[in-house]
Design a protein around this nucleic acid. Structure first.
Lengths: 222, 222
DNA sequence: TCAAAAGTGTTCCTGTTACACCCATGA
DNA sequence: TCATGGGTGTAACAGGAACACTTTTGA
């Protein structure tokens, strides 16, 4: 191994945190203070702590920024271009987290100038190689929505089928037939009625549903 | 960053190299010399060199073990359990490589006791966390075969449709209808005839085909 | 002439798509 | 009573699955 001890590599975790909000797919970004990226935006991340896994670090970062503790989190990919960070060799293991925007209260820390949701179609200038990371994360999310039930992680525990349909339409970027959609998710037994009604607005109240499984499974959803 | 420089982390790349051979999906494993894993098997891997990316390292390892230079190679996942290597904190970025067994000549180095192909259904005792890595790699490969054209990377440049079908049947673990299969791959225009014939054995010679694209694309193959 | 793998079409069935109207409520 | 989103069935179509025999060659 000898020469390997000369690597001088630092290991970081980055969290690409998605939600659906205001009719768009949004990513949580922080605005950086430190040079040379001052004022630029980035996915929240940081060096791992002693004896910590990157997954634990990603959960810590997620919780720090959003207060969320039980979101869906999965490893995306590892980015290790030697020039990705100008200050030295930092290898980043990127994670994707999906949260329901209702459960989130954004937490600014003094480390950053600002924290906010950005629509993925209109991202600001990003630091490091985060433009690439975000691109990979978005396409992974789109693909996964088609063949898994991960949509549950973007919704509150109880939701209407219209809300669920909206999530799919926003992320997939296409409209979906209401009747076919409802038949599909009910036939697949992804969701079940709670017996309660929503009753918001001047119209018929909607039945509230919940997911049978609040963990990922592979299903042909669309 | 301060305390981050205290990480003492080493970065390694591991290559899970697959081929199809003797009617089975096989993985290339090396038998280790060094303690504490003497005699155990593992996917070939090693520490990255100065200024090298993990992908470059994975290609280097692939070439060292097989002589292959242009195989399909993709990042699988990163494994960073602090206890995965008993000798210290080694984070491994695992890659999957697919090679045609015809193109391979196994190369033993003095670093290892032995190198050989193992059927993934009958793996020996594996060092580190490589049992888990292999499991993830196999399931990723199965999934990818269904919705991409990666099968090309497991075959020589010219092949018969029966060979192609055999690859699918072996990896997916189920039989496939010959007529439906041929129709599908031809309709999808994945392959095209070369005009040449195979003529091996006491039976009608088979047309030789080649892939139109020898790079990965997303297609509903099965 | 036999054995062994190559090659080839059609029917049935299932799942996907397309499509339009009535319902319950709050204002 | 009107505006708003909630909720429902059916027919046409396309793609997938099931299925058996003839062809070409080497021995």
């Amino acid at each position: 191994m000898g020469d390997a001890s000369e690597q001088h590599i630092k290991l970081a975790a980055d969290a690409v945190i998605f939600t659906v909000r205001d009719g768009a797919l949004m990513a949580l970004l922080i605005q950086m203070k430190k040079t040379p990226y001052t004022g630029m935006w980035a996915a929240p991340g940081g060096m791992i702590e002693q004896n910590e896994t990157t997954e634990t670090a990603a959960r810590r970062i997620l919780n720090m920024q959003t207060g969320v503790t039980d979101a869906h989190l999965e490893q995306l990919a590892t980015f290790d271009d030697p020039k990705r960070d100008r200050l030295g060799r930092v290898v980043s293991v990127a994670y994707v987290a999906l949260v329901s925007s209702e459960h989130v209260e954004l937490k600014t820390t003094e480390k950053y100038q600002d924290v906010r949701w950005w629509p993925v179609r209109k991202l600001p200038a990003l630091a490091y190689d985060h433009k690439g990371i975000l691109a990979v994360a978005v396409s992974r999310l789109r693909a996964k929505l088609e063949y898994t039930n991960v949509a549950w992680s973007l919704l509150p525990k109880k939701f209407t089928l219209s809300q669920l349909q909206e999530v799919y339409e926003i992320i997939l970027g296409r409209t979906v037939d209401k009747r076919n959609f409802r038949r599909k998710v009910l036939d697949l037994k992804l969701v079940e009625p709670t017996g309660k009604k929503s009753a918001r607005g001047a119209h018929r109240p909607a039945e509230l549903f919940k997911f049978k499984q609040r963990k990922m499974e592979y299903v042909d959803v669309m």
